[in-house]
C-alpha cells in the first residue's frame, strides 16, 4: 500500500517566479526504503517538507495515508505519521537535557506522563543513546545529536521517517553511526524510510533511488539501475559511488594510456 503519494505536485515559493518542483507524480509504498538524490537546489529538500505539511503544494496534492496535507483538520495526524529529521543537529534539539528533548513531541500530543516516560526510554534504547539520557545535548558529537533527533521523532511513533540530508554536517564516523541507526530501525520496525541526500554511497542499501533534477524526477529505479547510468548521473551534477568508476574501465578510464 502507498503511504505517501505525490499527485502531479508543483511547488513555487511565493516570492520567486520559478517553481522549485514541477509536476512530481510519485508514490512511496509502506515499508520501503527510498533514497532521494539531487544536487543542491534541485528541489529535494522541498519535497521532504511537502511530506508532512511544513509546506503545502501550490499545484496538485500530497496525501499521507489518504490525508490531504492541505487539510488543517488532519495537520497533527499527518505530522505524527511522518517524522522528520533535518540536516543541522543543533537546530532541532529543543531542551537542555537529552530525555526532555525526546519527550517534546509526545508532550505536545498530550500523551500521559507515564506513557511518555515509556516511549522516551524505548526511543532512546532504539537509537542506542539510553545511557546519555541525562546528558546535555551540546556536549554530544554530531552523530549522537542526530541519533537524539531521530529518537525525538520516534517518540511520536510515526509510520514514516523522512530524513533530510541527516549526514551532511557529520564526519564519516557520525555518518556511519546515523546510517547504521536508520538501517537497524528499518530491520526491527519495518518503518517506511525516505532518505534525502547527495552522498551516493548512502543509497546503496535502498530499495529504490529517485533522482531529482531541476524540480523534476530524472531517474527512478533500483540502485543498480540508477548507478549503471554513469554518464546521465554526471550530467545531472551527481557522482556515482567512486568504485563504480572501475566497473566500466573501457569507457571510463582516463589514464594517460587510454587518452
Amino acid at each position: 500500500m502507498d503511504v505517501i503519494t505525490f499527485d502531479h505536485v508543483g511547488f513555487r515559493y511565493p516570492d520567486s517566479p520559478e517553481p522549485v518542483l514541477k509536476n512530481i507524480d510519485i508514490a512511496f509504498s509502506g515499508g520501503s526504503f527510498t533514497a532521494v538524490l539531487g544536487h543542491n537546489g534541485s528541489g529535494k529538500s522541498t519535497m521532504a517538507k511537502l511530506c508532512n505539511a511544513i509546506l503545502t503544494p501550490t499545484e496538485g496534492a500530497v496525501r499521507v495515508k489518504g490525508m490531504d496535507t492541505r487539510d488543517d483538520n488532519s495537520l497533527l495526524s499527518v505530522r505524527r505519521t511522518v517524522g522528520m529529521v533535518f540536516q543541522n543537529p543543533d537546530n532541532q534539539i529543543v531542551a537542555s537535557v537529552v530525555e526532555d528533548d525526546v519527550a517534546f513531541a509526545p508532550e505536545n500530543l498530550g500523551v500521559e506522563p507515564s506513557e511518555i516516560r515509556r516511549r522516551v526510554d524505548n526511543a532512546l534504547r532504539r537509537v542506542g543513546m539510553y545511557e546519555f539520557r541525562l546528558h546535555a545535548p551540546h556536549l554530544l558529537s554530531g552523530g549522537q545529536k542526530q541519533r537524539i533527533a531521530i529518537a525525538g521523532v520516534l517518540a511520536m511513533q510515526p509510520e514514516i521517517l523522512v530524513l533530510d540530508e541527516p549526514t551532511a554536517m557529520l564526519d564519516p564516523y557520525g555518518r556511519r553511526e546515523v546510517l547504521a541507526t536508520v538501517e537497524e530501525l528499518r530491520a526491527e520496525t519495518g518503518m517506511t524510510v525516505l532518505l534525502i541526500t547527495h552522498h551516493m554511497d548512502e543509497c546503496i542499501n535502498a530499495d529504490r533511488v529517485v533522482v531529482i533534477s531541476d524540480g523534476e524526477i530524472a531517474l527512478d529505479g533500483t540502485p543498480a539501475d540508477v548507478f549503471s547510468r554513469v554518464e546521465t548521473m554526471r550530467d545531472l551534477g551527481l557522482d556515482v559511488p567512486a568504485t563504480t568508476d572501475c566497473a566500466k574501465p573501457g569507457r571510463m578510464c582516463r589514464c594517460p594510456r587510454c587518452r
Binding site: A242, T243, D245, C246, P249, M252, C253, R254, C255, R257
Partner: peptide, 9 residues
C-alpha cells in the same frame, strides 16, 4: 579508481 581499473585490466 583509475589505478585499480588499470591493474585489474
Amino acid at each position: 579508481p583509475r589505478f585499480l581499473a588499470g591493474v585489474l585490466l
